[in-house]
Structures are given as C-alpha cells and as structure tokens.
Design a protein around this nucleic acid. Structure first.
Length: 562
RNA sequence: GCGCUCGUAGCUCAAUGGAUAGAGCAUCUGACUACGGAUCAGAAGGUUGUGGGUUCGACUCCCGCCGAGCGCGCCA
C-alpha cells in the first residue's frame, strides 16, 4: 500500500533529520484537496520535544523526503502551523486501481483479527412476542458488525439467546391461558392481539383441552417461528439459538453457584425486598457499585444475572476468544455486574464486551387524525409496531440502510410515514443505482462488441480527470474506513462511505462518458468503473444490502408517481 | 440524588484532537434527442446547548451549569 510506503519514508526522514522518535506518526487524508493527498502533523508534535519551531522541523523533514526520492511523491509542502502536505502524482491512484482489481471481492479486508473466534450475541428479543420495529436496529447493526469483524479476519459466530424461562414466561402462560379460555387477562398480562391470535389458532388445532404448560410451550414455539421468519425476511441468519432453559436443565446454573461459593465470593445476607436470605456475589470487590443478588435461598430461584453468568461461562467454554453482546441502552446498568461476575468466575477482565445502543423512537401518522404521533413500544401494552409491519411497508434493504446510517450512540428517530413515503428516495436506492448503472454500462459494452482488454495492456495514465481521480481516492480510503468501523463497532461509517462513494460515481457518470470515449481512455474507464463496482459491492455486502445488476424501472414500480 | 449515553443547518444525521464543521430532506435556480433523470450542476441555510479549562490547534479531551433519553429489584 502506498500509504504504508509513505509512512515508512516519513519515519526514515525524521530519523535522517536527526529528530527525536515521535512515537506514533499519523498520516491523515486532509479534508481540503488543496492540502494534498496525505498530511502529517508530526512536526507540530515534535516541536516541544525538539524545542524548535514546527515549521523549521517540517522544513528539515521535507528536505530529507525530497532527497529520498519517494515513489509517486510529486512534492511536499509546508502549510499552516507546520503541516507536511504530501502531493502525489496521479500514478499512485492508478496503483490503487490495480490493487482493487487484484483483490476483487476481498478488497478492503484485513488480517488483524486472524485466528480470533468471536461470539456475537444480538437481538435476543424475548420469545413473548414478535420482534418490534425498534428491534430492527439491532438486527441490522448486529449483522453488519458481524460482517465487519469477519472482514478483519475473525471467525464470527452469530448467536441468539432465547430467554425461555423465568417470570416473563409465567406472564405469557397466564395471558395465553386467559385468551384460550376466554377469561379476563391478568393485570400485567400481554395485551397484544397476537396473544389472542395464538390462543385461537391453538384451539383450532388442538381443541380446548390443552393444559397451561402445553399452551405456553406451543405458544413460545409459534412466537420463535415468527421471529425466525422475520429475520429470514431481512436476511439475517444465526448460527446458534441458545435456550436459557438448557442452562437450568443441565445444572449449569447450580455449577456457577457452587464455583463461586467455593471461591468464597458469596455472602448470605437478609434481603428486605424478598424477605428472605439472599446469596450475594461480592462484585463490589471488582468495582461494581454494590453486591449483586444471585439466589433466593427460600424459593431457590436464581436471578437473571446468575443465569446470565452461566450462559457466558458456557460461551467461553465453547472456545471463543472473545465475546461481544449488543444490548439496548436500558440494560446499561447490568454491564458492570455481568463483567464483574464473569471476572469472578473465570478471571477474565472485560468479558463480555458490551456494545450499547440507544433506543429507536418510532413515529407514524395516526390514520384517524392525520397527525404525527409517537408510537410507544411496549409488548405488555400491545401497542407496538413489529418489524414485520415495517417490512410489509418497505423492503429489507431500505430497512437495513435506514438503521445503519446512524451511529448507535444516539437515539434514532424512525418515522414510518416518512420512510414509507420516501422509500423511493431512500439512500439505499441511490447507492444501488450506482451499482446498477455500472452493470448497465457493461451490458451496453457487450452489445456494442466492446471487450475489456487485459489490465496490463491498458494505459491507466489516461485517467486524469478530477472525477476519475476522486473515485480512486475514495477507493484508496476504503480499507481504512472498514478497519475503523470494525474497531469501533460502528457500521454507520461504512454506510456513509458507500453513500459518498455512490455520490462521487454519479458525478463522474454525469461528467464523463465511458462508451463514447476513444479506445485508450475507454479501456481505462472500463477498468475504473469495474473497480468502482467492486467497491460498492464490497461495502454493501458488509451492510447486508443487495447490490443489484439492474433496478426496477421507476415507472414500472407500483404506486409511484413520477 | 447518583450513573450511562447524548445535545451540531428549519428537519434527520455525519465529522481517528487538525487547516474554511459536512451530507440528505425541505426551499430556490438550472440540466435529458444522452452509458437508466431513483441522476447531475448550483444557491441559500451554523456563536457545534452554555460558561470555564487543557494546547500550536477543541464539535471532539477535562470541570461546572442547562436540557433530553435510559438506568439505579432481592424483575427479566
């Protein structure tokens, strides 16, 4: 990579200039084109240690760089307070094109996570109802993060934790039984119409003599089937569906308690709320703000944390080198105690890594009043909009892109009415259009009998237009974008890159003709757009979005006013 | 009260401590006898909530204040 070569040359120049070792040397891509292709701020950083003026240091480094005759380097400018701006010849971008074409589908991938086996748990929506619309955020983000980690070399295992035990199942059972027998719903029952729907179906299939346990079992099966169907609709596959119940049945939970007791990490103290003796895990020793309850000695029931510890111990026992959980912000308070518990149990620090995502605020137009209303999502109240409802209105690509364009650090506003009404203007189509346009040029070329010559026989030096160079600059940046996005678990960076890249392509498309160009340029441009197609397809694959060869004609799409 | 995450254009959102804070939508002006107009070219829009601090440089880091969301079962 050209950037690595430049960095090495820069380091060598710093040494040759007799300057102290600056430690990390950063080579940035400046925002302003006028500031060159790469910029280094190392002279500013060295100013203090060397007790010299930054610009003076920059001059010394620049002189060494010129003497070294670095490949592709046209000139080095000193700018502003002491930046070193590297201006490269377009030839470096022609190298980039070759790199992209050579790497093909693997362009942008890296090996930093080679040998890592990562377990990524996400969604894990409770089997007490369908996945709600806001849950779509975790579906899209989790799958994209899995793809990102895999792009860096990790073997990623997608896992769904099924909380098919505990009090919520009791509530579901009682709610189902009430609907099944035509009784009044319990005070805190699930009011969603899907409960009635399941009860009616089960009565139709099994008569009215099912006992409550069977009712609940069959009900959960149906709900899980819905969840799996919804995930299939949006194209997400899980490698493991882990049932919480197995932890209890296999005695894993008891083992965890025995282990912690044997380590002397459990205190038995009176619990006021439960009005019973409670077994407490001394997580305060490990930085938690208070000790955490694990088990009620009177009833024998274990807490969510206790079960979760058994679960995460099981994951580690399966040989994963790293665990990542994606959680909603409402579980933020559990992070410390789970990590402290895992540390108490295994000695591992910082496992599992928790990726916290902020909530989705859902809006829609009230069909009765025509006013914009916020839809509060509550399974219990049954007022939620499901992911399936969203997928009924817009396709999976639109849904994914909408969720992926925003950082999960901020709460997302998802306006169903806007997303539906403007779905044709969704950024995802803008990107897909760019991909389809390239495919279309390919078809036209074939029709005209134009073949792409071997890359070695093509003069890429024809590519001198700013639009062409800009595309290659963006492609050059892509591997770094991927690496950053993977490291910070931030797929929105890829979503923004691919949108910006599509924008650069559309601009090129408007300004530069491919098939009408003279043969040398024609050939170079055929390779250029081929590289662009690879870049678009790679990034879209990370996002889990399709890269179509053609788009449905707008005037052939139902319900679209042109 | 304490903790976590935030506060950026009218709206929805970007911006590894870098140089003149960027996109989309909406608004306005233009461009098809064209490789697909689901497109392009341009205009307008900002005291980055607020007050301090750190430094060559702060949307970014630190502290205070204001505001928002979410937590603070011995529920899940």
């Amino acid at each position: 990579m050209i950037r690595d070569q430049l960095l090495a040359s820069l380091r060598a120049a710093i040494g040759a200039a007799g300057l102290p070792d600056p430690g990390d040397v950063a080579l940035e891509v400046p925002r302003e084109r006028a500031h060159g292709d790469f910029a280094a701020n190392v002279a500013l950083q060295l100013a203090r240690a060397a007790s010299r003026k930054p610009r003076e240091i920059a001059e010394a480094i620049a002189a060494e760089l010129v003497r070294a005759e670095v490949p592709h380097l046209e000139r080095v400018e000193i700018a502003g307070p002491g930046f070193l701006n590297f201006h490269l010849r377009p030839t470096w971008l022609h190298e980039v094109l070759r790199e992209v074409v050579t790497a093909g589908a693997a362009y942008g991938t890296a090996t930093v996570l080679d040998g890592q086996r990562i377990n990524l748990e996400f969604v894990s929506s409770n089997p007490t109802g369908p996945i709600h619309a806001g849950g779509g955020r975790w579906v899209a983000v989790g799958d994209a993060i899995a793809n990102l980690l895999a792009s860096q070399g990790a073997a990623v295992h997608r896992e769904y934790y099924l909380n098919d035990a505990g009090n919520q199942l009791v509530t579901l059972r009682e709610s189902l039984a009430a609907r099944y027998h035509g009784r009044e719903l319990p005070a805190d029952g699930y009011q969603g119409t899907y409960v009635t729907e399941i009860a009616d179906t089960l009565r139709a299939e099994h008569g009215d003599d099912l006992d409550d346990a069977a009712l609940c079992e069959l009900g959960v099966q149906r709900i899980v089937a819905w969840i799996q169907r919804d995930l299939a609709r949006i194209g997400v596959h899980f490698d493991t569906w882990f049932s919480e119940r197995t932890l209890h049945e296999r005695g894993d939970v008891d083992e965890v308690l025995d282990t912690l007791r044997a380590k002397g990490l459990i205190d038995v103290r009176w619990g006021d709320k439960a009005e019973a003796d409670i077994e407490w895990l001394r997580t305060t020793d490990l930085g938690d703000s208070r000790d955490r309850a694990l088990r009620n000695t009177a009833t024998g029931t274990t807490t969510y944390l206790c079960n979760d510890l058994a679960y995460h111990r099981d994951k580690l026992a399966r040989g994963f080198t790293h665990l990542i959980d994606i959680w909603g912000a409402d579980h933020q308070g559990q992070v410390k105690s789970l990590q402290a518990g895992v540390q108490a149990l295994t000695g591992l620090v910082g496992e599992p890594e928790i990726v916290l995502g902020q909530f989705v605020k859902l809006f829609d137009i009230d069909p009765n009043t025509g006013e914009k209303i916020e839809l509060k999502m509550s399974k219990r109240a049954g007022t939620f909009v499901s992911l399936a409802d969203v997928l009924d209105r817009v396709d999976g690509d639109v849904t994914r892109m909408t969720f992926l364009l925003q950082s999960i650090d901020t709460k997302q506003t998802f306006d169903l009415a806007i997303v539906t009404a403007q779905s044709m203007e969704n950024p995802v189509y803008y990107v897909q259009m760019a991909h389809a346009r390239i495919a279309s040029i390919g078809r036209k070329a074939t029709e005209a009998g134009i073949e792409r010559a071997p890359l070695d026989a093509v003069d890429l030096g024809c590519l001198t237009e700013e639009h062409e160079l800009e595309l290659l600059r963006m492609l050059a940046r892509y591997p770094e974008v991927l690496a950053d996005a993977a490291q910070s678990r931030a797929p929105h960076r890829v979503a923004h890159w691919v949108h910006d890249f599509a924008s650069a392509f559309h601009a090129f498309y408007g300004a530069c003709r491919v098939l009408d160009a003279e043969p040398p340029l024609l050939q170079a441009r055929l390779w250029l757009i081929h590289a662009c197609q690879l870049g678009l397809a790679n990034a879209l694959a990370i996002l889990g979005v399709n890269a179509p060869e053609s788009m449905a004609r707008l005037d052939e799409v139902d319900g679209i006013d042109s």
